[in-house]
Amino acid sequence: MSEVRVLHVPQRFDFSQHKTFTEQYSAMLEEKLCQKILMDFSRTEYLDSSALGMMVLLNKKAKAQNIRVSIKGAKDNARDILLIANFEKLFEFE
């Protein structure tokens, strides 16, 4: 089993994704071998403030378990929003 888990972020990442997003990352955090969660933003075109809040909560829970969280594939508007929110200070960008 790999130590890295990939969380595929949807095309439109907003509050309607809360339940699915939380269930996905919670399952990853419960895995004994998980050392890193990689959020794949390659399909994401839109995210709002609730999505940013969900990401902060994921980061907080992961950090408590010494699990790293990083972002890959963010582009265009999604990347701009993440950078405006200073998320490069919370997450490693790949």
Rank of each mutant, 00 (worst) to 15 (best):
1 M>W: 05
2 S>Q: 09
2 S>N: 11
2 S>R: 06
4 V>A: 09
5 R>N: 01
6 V>A: 02
7 L>S: 02
7 L>Q: 07
7 L>V: 02
7 L>K: 09
8 H>R: 13
8 H>Q: 10
9 V>G: 03
10 P>V: 04
10 P>Y: 08
10 P>Q: 08
10 P>E: 04
10 P>W: 05
12 R>Y: 02
12 R>Q: 06
13 F>I: 06
13 F>M: 06
14 D>A: 09
14 D>S: 10
16 S>F: 03
16 S>G: 06
17 Q>P: 00
17 Q>A: 11
18 H>M: 12
18 H>F: 09
19 K>E: 14
20 T>I: 07
21 F>D: 01
21 F>W: 08
21 F>C: 02
22 T>E: 15
22 T>S: 15
22 T>F: 11
26 S>Y: 05
26 S>H: 13
27 A>F: 04
27 A>S: 12
27 A>H: 11
27 A>G: 14
27 A>T: 08
27 A>R: 15
28 M>K: 03
29 L>I: 05
29 L>F: 10
29 L>G: 10
31 E>F: 03
31 E>R: 08
32 K>A: 14
32 K>N: 13
33 L>H: 14
35 Q>N: 14
35 Q>R: 11
35 Q>W: 03
36 K>P: 01
37 I>V: 13
38 L>R: 15
39 M>I: 12
41 F>A: 15
41 F>E: 10
43 R>S: 12
43 R>F: 03
43 R>E: 06
44 T>V: 11
45 E>H: 12
47 L>R: 14
47 L>P: 15
48 D>V: 15
48 D>K: 15
48 D>S: 12
48 D>H: 13
49 S>F: 08
50 S>Q: 13
50 S>M: 15
50 S>K: 13
50 S>A: 15
52 L>P: 00
52 L>A: 14
53 G>F: 11
53 G>Q: 12
54 M>Q: 12
54 M>H: 07
55 M>R: 10
56 V>Y: 12
56 V>K: 13
57 L>G: 01
58 L>C: 12
58 L>N: 06
59 N>H: 14
59 N>P: 02
60 K>G: 01
60 K>I: 05
60 K>E: 06
61 K>E: 13
61 K>S: 10
61 K>M: 12
61 K>Q: 14
62 A>L: 11
62 A>E: 09
63 K>N: 11
63 K>H: 09
64 A>I: 03
65 Q>L: 13
66 N>S: 13
66 N>D: 15
67 I>Q: 04
67 I>C: 02
67 I>R: 05
68 R>D: 13
68 R>M: 12
68 R>G: 01
69 V>Y: 00
69 V>H: 03
69 V>G: 03
70 S>H: 07
70 S>A: 05
72 K>C: 07
73 G>K: 08
73 G>C: 08
74 A>M: 05
75 K>G: 05
75 K>V: 02
76 D>Y: 05
76 D>H: 08
77 N>L: 06
78 A>F: 02
79 R>T: 08
79 R>L: 03
80 D>G: 06
80 D>T: 15
80 D>M: 07
81 I>G: 02
82 L>R: 03
83 L>W: 00
84 I>R: 05
85 A>E: 09
85 A>F: 00
87 F>P: 07
87 F>Q: 05
88 E>W: 02
88 E>S: 04
89 K>F: 00
89 K>R: 11
90 L>C: 03
91 F>R: 10
92 E>H: 06
93 F>R: 10
93 F>C: 05
94 E>I: 04
94 E>C: 01
94 E>R: 00
94 E>L: 01
